[in-house]
């Protein structure tokens, strides 16, 4: 991108460049502000905020606020629930999508083309927007107040299989698969020890997006989890706003901060992978 020589015409853009940085920096300030505000409110006490003049700097009351969150709700439990649900559901999705993607990309079997076309067609069919029948089915199966409605229907998605097939096609060399077979490796062994390692970058990328979506999922957890001990973080947060009224911001914000932090940290660690793959992730629609 930067290797080949630039014509000198670009020189007249210099002032434009400074203006560009100005626009971007202003944008970053505006976009960062809600995070800063979250920090300010979560670390000041509600009475200080209401006593006004408006607080604009972080305070020292975060631990007091967070204590109220944990005392008044099963927040810690919700946090643990979110961790378990997100980890379990994402791992299952990765495994099943990678397996199906690998088979579609690298194995030959009758009906392969037709099945894959069918899978592509299902990409345009949204599931779960018609709430009533899905809810009826989950409750008929006795799945309410469990994580099953959140895990099983999405255990493998067309989008995931599609993404993993692309990855297997591009990154798993046929020679390697053949060599494994010559060495006597069976089907699962070839998939696990040969194909999966080659697909690692795509797995990491898909995994991050999956973690993001599951951690932040709200509609279905809200519908199927009715007991506080089953809540995931988004539902627990929504309940916090209800039970403390709209003005006890500090407590609610302390919870919000804790719920938001893990993914922020994860993203900052893996941001290169996320940004490189964001356009693939967006295809989900």
């Amino acid at each position: 991108m930067t290797d080949h020589p630039r014509p000198r015409v670009r020189a007249h853009l210099r002032p434009g460049r400074i203006a560009g940085h100005g626009v971007l920096a202003l944008g970053v300030l505006v976009f960062a502000f809600p995070f800063y505000w979250l920090l300010v409110i979560a670390t000041n006490s509600t009475s200080d905020i209401l006593a006004g003049p408006p607080r604009l700097l972080p305070g020292t009351h975060f631990l007091d606020n967070f204590e109220k969150v944990t005392a008044g709700s099963e927040f810690v439990r919700a946090f643990a629930n979110s961790v378990v649900l997100t980890a379990g559901s994402s791992a299952l999705q990765l495994l099943l999508a990678a397996l199906a993607g690998y088979v579609f990309a690298k194995r030959r079997f009758p009906g392969r083309g037709a099945l894959f076309s069918a899978l592509l067609v299902t990409l345009i069919i949204p599931t779960g927007v018609s709430i009533v029948p899905s809810y009826q089915i989950y409750s008929g199966l006795g799945w309410t107040n469990t994580f099953l409605p959140l895990v099983v229907p999405n255990a493998v998605t067309a989008f995931g299989v599609f993404w993993m097939r692309q990855a297997a096609e591009a990154n798993v060399p046929d020679e390697l698969v053949d060599a494994a077979r010559m060495d006597g490796a069976g089907f699962l062994r070839t998939f696990w020890s040969v194909a999966l390692p080659c697909m690692r970058p795509a797995l990491v990328a898909f995994g991050i997006f999956q973690v993001m979506w599951t951690w932040n999922d709200y509609l279905w957890p809200l519908l199927v989890l009715n007991r506080p001990e089953n809540f995931t973080l988004p539902v627990a947060l929504q309940q916090l706003t209800g039970s403390y009224g709209p003005t006890d911001y500090s407590v609610v914000m302390a919870g919000t901060l804790v719920a938001t932090l893990p993914l922020l940290v994860l993203f900052l660690i893996l941001r290169r992978t996320v940004l490189l793959n964001a356009s693939d992730g967006a295809l989900k629609g």
Binding site: F31, P34, L38, M212, L237, Q238, Y249, M253, L275
Partner: peptide
Amino acid sequence: ALYQTAFFLPQVTSVVAVTIVFQSL
């Protein structure tokens, strides 16, 4: 990369959390 990261950061937050923050703003 810094700009990209800063602009992408909100995408990582949950809509519930965002709504609570905007409610207060």
